[in-house]
Design a protein around this nucleic acid. Structure first.
Lengths: 340, 340
DNA sequence: CAGCCTCATTGAAACGTTTCAATTAGTTTC
DNA sequence: GAAACTAATTGAAACGTTTCAATGAGGCTG
């Protein structure tokens, strides 16, 4: 019953126990210099016996290296970002890095808090989906030597690298499909419009609508959640028929899922006959909604993976030039829209 | 255009720039001792001008404090664990701690890797949903002074605290409901059975079935994912009618969602008339499946929050006694089962 | 056996903070 | 005007590593 009460053991104790110097212990642990078989055995044994655990803080302080990346996304509960994080994590694992994840909840203040935290942690790089329009803080961080990669957000005028999926093209695709299905009164549901992901999708959609001489009604939401979708849906289905859209393009699948709930709970409208519905992201659940959801698929996993890999590549090559990698989304047709 | 090229600035530079000692700078930053208004202003200005950022490694090394908790879950993509993580994060934010998250993918090796990583990080505490049966490693960590809290897993014989939801009771509830709806050939779908969450739910279900003189058929899966649900579903709907269950209890909602996809794609069976279906967790999407899914709701968010709070409380009070906090799940009836 | 390798090990200086006892300057008290 | 306080500031010692130049012990060579 000898409970090894918090006897914090450092390399000094290990060295003493094994009868060697501290430097030797370090070399055994890191294989940083040749050590004889005998010594390795002795030291390893002492490490086990004493239950020594390396101190990451000390090691990082001395070596300057940190071996971690920071990722800040808008909402970890959103399956799209969960996939992004998953892809990023896999890429980090492969590179022997650990990934710190922050959830900004689309709030600039929280995002900023995580950026500061990660900066203090001296992460090797930062992957960020920014919440606000002003990227100067990120630019500052990048110019001070920490590589920054924008995820699902273009650099705009800022001097930053990015990995994105073409949102305007996606919006255009969505409307193209709805119009081909014969829709006459399309609407866009989403928000906040301060998010370029939202406004770009809306813009692409509006442009395509205009080409067919159609107006695109816009219903702005506060969030991109199931709940927000349900409440705006409740509003829209209660509109008099002449004001009600006959096709709704939701800025993401969570909104669409909530919207569908509202249509079914609060109206007798049929999907897609009376109201066509298309989402964005093609999350796993889109396939399984009451009426299976047509959606615009984004390669989320790939986005995360690519972001990490590009960051590391850029880091390694000490490159200055910023790259913008842009993927193209893909239409996935299911029953919530009229197939053509 | 003066790009502050990686001029790594430490407290020494700040002190020099402000014309004070390093100690004073530290006191300004941490408010750890009274400093005159004048000096505070001077130092703050120097910090801004030089772009000083605290070095977390050095600060932690010296102070011994780390202000972070580690959380290891089975699968971050599973909405249940996403909610647990969310609750934990909120509680951490409230306590001024940062939360490190690891995803074990139900692999003991990956879990172990994260535990080591967190140990090196000297986290203030560990929240773990273990993948394997052997908790001796965790017990060892706890006895060496790092508080450990099991999440969604009981301590069994081990000397550890836990926060759980009663799985056997949940399984019992599910079967109770199915039997009340008139089911005669119930089945359980889930796995791996090495996870107590799975085996306890199955056990509760089997016991309740036995009380009504019914057998519970068991179909084991490798994972608790949509895909696994779909493939076992494909198998089950293709069974000859006399072997086919008339009610299926899935060990979680992801399985149930996949199962439902299979039923619809590969059979003409109606839910719930020909086949009743009940899931577990009551994730947000359960409400929106093709046939809205009956499920056993777990307070996931609360689980995460409580885990953190209990850990901190235990930590603070320096308590030795281990507590087991157990919540009770709740049946949520929707259309995938016959209401009674 | 002097000189020169090679191989393994060592000792001590850094890394950037926090912390605490010591110092200085200024103010009050008798 | 000495003594006793208070308030603000300082200096230096840790914290646990990594790293690098230096040391020592053999073994070879000529």
């Amino acid at each position: 019953m000898k409970e090894g009460r918090l006897a914090k053991v450092s390399m000094r104790e290990v060295a003493a126990h094994a009868g060697v110097s501290v430097g030797t212990v370090s070399h055994v642990i890191n294989r940083s210099q040749k050590v004889s078989e005998d010594t390795i055995a002795k030291v390893s044994r002492s490490i086990d016996v004493l239950g020594f655990v390396r101190n990451a803080a000390a090691r990082q302080l001395r070596s300057g290296r940190s071996s971690s990346l920071g990722l800040v996304v808008l909402d970890t509960a959103n399956p799209f970002f969960a996939s992004v994080a998953h892809g990023a994590r896999e890429a980090c694992d492969a590179a022997g890095l650990s990934l710190l994840i922050g959830d900004s909840g689309t709030e600039v203040a929280r995002e900023s808090k995580y950026l500061d935290l990660f900066a203090e942690q001296r992460v090797n790089g930062l992957l960020v989906t920014p919440s606000g329009a002003d990227l100067s803080k990120l630019e500052g961080i990048a110019s001070r030597g920490t590589p920054v990669m924008l995820v699902d957000r273009e650099a705009g005028g800022y001097s930053l690298s990015s990995v994105t999926v073409d949102n305007a093209a996606g919006g255009r695709m969505a409307l193209d499909h709805l119009i081909a299905g014969g829709c006459a009164k399309p609407a866009f549901v989403g928000g906040p419009f301060t998010l370029p992901q939202v406004s770009d999708r809306a813009r692409g959609a509006r442009e395509r609508a205009a080409e067919s001489d159609l107006d695109l009604a816009v219903f702005e939401t506060d969030e991109l959640t199931i709940l927000a979708g349900r409440s705006i849906g409740e509003h829209i289905v209660s509109l008099p028929e002449e004001e009600r859209p006959d096709a709704v393009f939701c800025a993401n699948d969570l909104l669409a899922v909530g919207f569908m709930q509202a249509v079914i709970m609060f109206s007798a409208l049929r999907i897609p006959e009376d109201l066509a519905l298309i989402g964005y992201d093609d999350i796993d659940y889109a396939f399984s909604t009451i009426v299976p959801l047509t959606s615009i698929r984004q390669p989320a996993d790939l986005l995360g993976r690519t972001a990490v890999e590009s960051l590391l590549a850029e880091n390694e090559s000490g490159e200055q030039a910023h790259r913008d990698e842009k993927f193209t989304p893909e239409l996935v047709v299911r029953q919530s829209t009229k197939d053509v």
